[in-house]
Simulated scan of single mutants.
Amino acid sequence: MNKVLSSEELMKYIHEMNRENSVMQFSIPGKGQFTLVLQEEENQSIEEDVIKNPQLEMMFKESEEQYKKGLGMTTSELLKSLTEKDFI
């Protein structure tokens, strides 16, 4: 377990984290022990999601057709239509 004595030292450890080195346990005197886990953010496009899940493409197309027919609803309209009974 690493002992961290300054914010600069902690930032150095964080900077060195990657997919293979994604968990770091350390202690800060007077504070306690910590476990830091790097969770990489995937920057995946909608197109990539659709390729992975063909049903998603079908949902997008159906949604677009309904929107063109005027069957859509704005977020504001949806929120106005909800009552307390919808959450029980």
Rank of each mutant, 00 (worst) to 15 (best):
M1C: 13
K3D: 14
L5C: 11
L5Q: 09
S6M: 05
E8L: 06
E9P: 03
E9R: 01
E9V: 06
M11T: 00
M11W: 08
K12L: 14
Y13P: 08
H15R: 08
M17T: 02
M17S: 02
M17V: 10
N18H: 08
R19D: 15
N21M: 04
V23D: 13
F26W: 02
S27Y: 00
S27R: 04
P29R: 08
P29S: 14
G30Q: 00
G30E: 01
K31G: 12
G32P: 01
F34Y: 05
T35C: 12
T35G: 12
V37H: 09
V37S: 14
E40D: 11
E41N: 05
E41Y: 05
E42A: 14
E42Q: 08
N43L: 06
Q44D: 11
I46K: 07
I46T: 10
E48Y: 06
D49L: 03
V50T: 06
V50L: 05
I51Q: 08
I51A: 14
I51H: 00
N53R: 03
P54S: 15
Q55D: 15
E57G: 14
E57V: 00
M58H: 00
M58F: 03
K61D: 12
K61E: 12
E62A: 15
E62Q: 10
E62I: 02
S63I: 10
E65G: 08
Q66I: 04
Q66P: 01
Q66F: 01
Y67F: 07
K68Y: 04
K68T: 09
K68F: 06
K69Y: 08
G70S: 07
G70M: 04
L71D: 13
M73D: 11
T74N: 01
T74V: 07
S76D: 13
L78C: 14
L79Q: 09
L79M: 12
K80N: 15
S81K: 03
L82P: 09
L82I: 01
T83D: 13
T83I: 01
E84K: 02
K85I: 09
D86R: 02
D86G: 10
